[in-house]
Design a protein around this nucleic acid. Sequence first.
DNA 1: AATGAGCGTATCGTATGCAATTATTGTCGG
DNA 2: CCGACAATAATTGCATACGATACGCTCATT
Lengths: 250, 250
Amino acid sequence: MDKNLTRRPRAADATVAATGSPGARALSVYRALRKAIIEQALRPGMKLPEDTIGERLGVSRTLVREALGRLALEGLVELKPNRGASVAYPTLEEARDVFDVRRGLERMVAETLAGRISKKQVAELEAHVRLEEAALQSGGVEAIRLAGEFHIKLVEMTGNALLSRYVQELSSRCTLILAIYGRPHSSECAVSEHRELIEAFVQGDAKRAAELMDHHLQAVVSRALIAPRVEQDIRDLLAPYAASEGLTQP
Amino acid sequence: MDKNLTRRPRAADATVAATGSPGARALSVYRALRKAIIEQALRPGMKLPEDTIGERLGVSRTLVREALGRLALEGLVELKPNRGASVAYPTLEEARDVFDVRRGLERMVAETLAGRISKKQVAELEAHVRLEEAALQSGGVEAIRLAGEFHIKLVEMTGNALLSRYVQELSSRCTLILAIYGRPHSSECAVSEHRELIEAFVQGDAKRAAELMDHHLQAVVSRALIAPRVEQDIRDLLAPYAASEGLTQP
DNA sequence: AATGAGCGTATCGTATGCAATTATTGTCGG
DNA sequence: CCGACAATAATTGCATACGATACGCTCATT
């Protein structure tokens, strides 16, 4: 069958492959899972068995484990001892923590950028905003992605690699959170608010930039996260059906 | 010799052991290395071969690798492909990034805590400051540790677990950085500044608290990190000589 | 004597194997 | 008909094995 004894797993069999570099396959696994989670191909709460993933991706459990560990540290995966990994299902409290920290960090971004942004960077941001607008018109789902990328672009302009990593991490987690608690397709980021931010950067008004960013992110939360709390626990899902049949449980 | 074939690595041979829980040994390795790095038993730049560590700690390379990976994500260890791990040796630029982000996060802490701190918490903080004072008098090295713990206590009082993790991570990295670039035993944190902070919290003056924290951390940097920057890269050492001879490099 | 090729060793990257734990299903007594 | 229990299956935790890679050494060559 598949169990060819002369099989050399070395190369030429990894479907996704990536470069032949040493740790590259491990990274690929990590990125694949990450992308799948963010795109919600893997929904929050889903189990992530090591063999299954490894088999599908053409790597051993070792690499999958490594990737899962990393994702767990980033908060995209939950890792319970002896019970395996699953896509993270943050509680509302964790969600609040994530958004709060993100707001704090992005305020930093805004303050840093104010007055210290080049013509070229401004042009790039304005071009991006126009893209957002276009996407919003044609009502594509990519409007959401673009809105997120605006923030990534901003943080990368600070030149602080660490800040960049943190914001990107939190950004992913926010996506996951909105997938759980957010309303279906709230446009998330108002383009006008992005424009105002750029303006504040150009004018070098750090205080205003910081406040704009703060309110902007606050707005994202209140627009999207009216928290209807979609229950996924079978018990809770079944409760109303039980009731309708006159069944009751402890 | 040591290579007893009937050896059961199962249990009862881990010198440090820890509880019998599943992932506990991995955690132990992680913590052991972390502690060793922070206490500078393992100095920045030192090589960290997997087998050596595993042998010494009584675990297999698998667990060591896991720990090293995690430490690498936290910035305490550098992981170069095919060349193994070593204790991180941050560049001055990375150091600046770390301190900047830390200042931003701790400013958040200060703002959050202002006016939202209980009597009991104030008492705890004041007691801690008194400890710091005492340690400073008796000139112990623990003054540094206590100063750091003050900040940890603060962030934990915010109730934001994520913020807490981030600050703790950055705090460790700061220690490492100061071990490289800091002057021998600058007392790092002025106790008086800690007192002022507490006062601002009690008075509920968020703005003042944030600024105090900002300046406080800025002061730590300028007090400790006058950065004589012992260059270790031959290229950089040679650069001025090259220039003085009119030589230029690609 | 310096330089470069060839080889050996140390160490990493990854796959795989085995024991242990947990979840699940089928069965039996109440 | 319901709950407890035992056997089974699935899956993790960890160790180890094996191939690959980089580094340092010796030695021949210029």
